[in-house]
């Protein structure tokens, strides 16, 4: 479980997060939703220590993270898998080397064992046999999927995904959503997914927090979100005519 308490973060005069708290349980998919520029990525980066919040705390199963020094953070970070919004693949390495990289760094497995793991991860994101390609030779959606494969390579206890299915076709999107849900349930991972994809919200949103104007505006499950009367949330979730029609039918 990850708990955040009263996270504040500004960039200069731009106050992006104005005190966000929440509890993300293991074994369920937790979503952070909100409009573009609402601070979703910033919140995620505060949680993993890439941004330093001015105020607030992050607890990984009770272990306070923001106060730790570099060495102490490493222990927690080894348990984290992260998919970046821009994939952040190592572009001097092939797909295989990218996924194998954390295994090389932190395990003493034999090469064949590591290769099995790489192929297993690639299979799960539907990229079998793409081992030898370089990131520059992949499409945007393929990079995303390699990013996911790399994030799950070490069997993380905490999984963070920043817009895992932006840039993917609807079918692959659902495959990725299902994969995230499966991994979460199978390994009892604490999973936090940033998204503004409404299919994901409806499909896998066990616990959702909605960021608006730097605050946690709403929290609840995908079942509750359909019934909400809050104007801002409705404007966001049911922005498209299609979703509006779907809602009216409910």
């Amino acid at each position: 479980m990850i708990e955040i308490k009263d996270i504040h973060k500004s960039f200069g005069d731009n106050e992006v997060l104005k005190g966000i708290s929440g509890k993300f349980q293991e074994g369920v998919t937790n979503l952070i939703i909100g409009g573009s520029g609402s601070g979703k990525t910033t919140l995620l980066k505060c949680m993993i220590g890439l941004h330093h919040p001015e105020q607030g705390h992050v607890y990984y199963d009770g272990r306070e993270f923001t106060q730790l020094n570099f060495e102490e953070r490493i222990e927690i970070r080894k348990e984290i898998g992260m998919l970046f919004q821009g994939s952040a693949l190592f572009d001097s390495m092939t797909v295989e080397e990218n996924i194998m990289f954390p295994l090389n760094m932190f395990t003493d497995q034999a090469r064949s064992e590591k290769l099995d793991r790489v192929n297993f991860c690639l299979e799960r994101v539907n990229l079998e046999g793409k081992n030898a390609l370089y990131p520059a030779e992949l499409s945007g959606g393929m990079k995303k999927r390699v990013g996911i494969a790399r994030a799950i390579a070490m069997n993380p206890k905490y999984l963070f995904c920043d817009e895992p299915n932006s840039g993917l076709d609807p079918k692959t999107s659902i495959v990725i959503d299902e994969l995230i849900k499966e991994i979460t349930e199978e390994y009892n991972t604490t999973t936090i997914v940033v998204t503004h994809d409404m299919n994901s919200v409806m499909g896998i949103g066990d616990y959702i927090i909605f960021l608006h104007e730097g605050k946690k505006f709403w929290e609840g499950s995908n079942k509750e979100i359909a019934k909400t009367d809050i104007q801002e949330l409705n404007d966001f979730v049911f922005a498209s005519r299609f979703m509006k029609a779907a809602k009216d039918k409910l």
């Binding site: 890439l50 953070r73 970046f84 821009g86 693949l89 954390p102 932190f106």
Partner: peptide, 17 residues
């Protein structure tokens, strides 16, 4: 380039110095 494409962040998240 590794910095602006978040590859350095990715290293740090993995717990690599």
């Amino acid at each position: 380039t590794m910095r602006v494409t978040e590859q350095i962040d990715a290293l740090e998240i993995m717990g690599i110095n």
